[in-house]
Amino acid sequence: MKRRSLALRFVALFYVAVLVGAPLVLVFQRAFSPGLDSVWHSLTASDTASAIRLTLVVAAITLPLNVIFGVGASLLIVRHPSKFSRLLDTLIDVPLAISPIIIGLALELAYASNGVFGRALAHLGWQIIFSWPGIVLASAAVSLPLVSREMVPLLREIGDSQEQTAATLGAKPARIFFTITLRSVAWAAAYGATLTLARIIGEYGAVLIVSGNITNKTQTLTLDIASNFENFATQQGFAGAALLAMISIGVLIVLSLAKQRERKNYEYHD
């Protein structure tokens, strides 16, 4: 039995090392082998630098929108169930199952200047597709479910007895919301927000279609990395890739720490 479990352990480790570990190592090796200087150079080159800027702007706009939406939708779904909120619940999960290319295509069809809505918006002087608002929409679409998927189960589990207690203690609804409701799901919201941020920064397929991939104008970092790689500016591409990989690792660390702390908070010592 011991020997068999040892063998299984090695097989599992080997599989993960080869499949997941090797690529991770390679990213950093390729990025850093010519030295830190080269990495800095790559990241500050005009196309990459403006891609980084655009990515940050998009994230700064999309993240708060999706978090507020996610929190609101979760509260609606759990605390005020209705046919509408059930529909909302189903629709929110849609982006999870769809290819990002299809999401991008759908957005383009809906909002391109010759599209149904695009035409109306174009009259107002707004261009959505092939411009940054389209990227915001695409990022919002792909990361939409991430906050509510964390919050809904938690809200369901803790129930509303805390809110009811606060009411008996004299608190008005607004006060209850801010001091009790939000605080009790803060961790889940933060967790979801982190996942959302990671997704926004890392999205490729949907943004590729919706942005038009115009260098220095509508390229996010992911698009920049891809175009560098395709145009044999391999070094530059890997520098950007290493940056994203580091962000991903950072996100993973933050999330696993959060999970550990959360688990401690919810068990009673009886």
Partner: peptide
């Protein structure tokens, strides 16, 4: 409304403010 009735209420699951 409940907040003006000056009552004290205890739940079966204690309903502590966990945070």
């Amino acid at each position: 409304p409940v907040r003006e009735r000056q009552i004290g209420f205890c739940f079966q699951n204690y309903a502590p403010f966990r945070h």
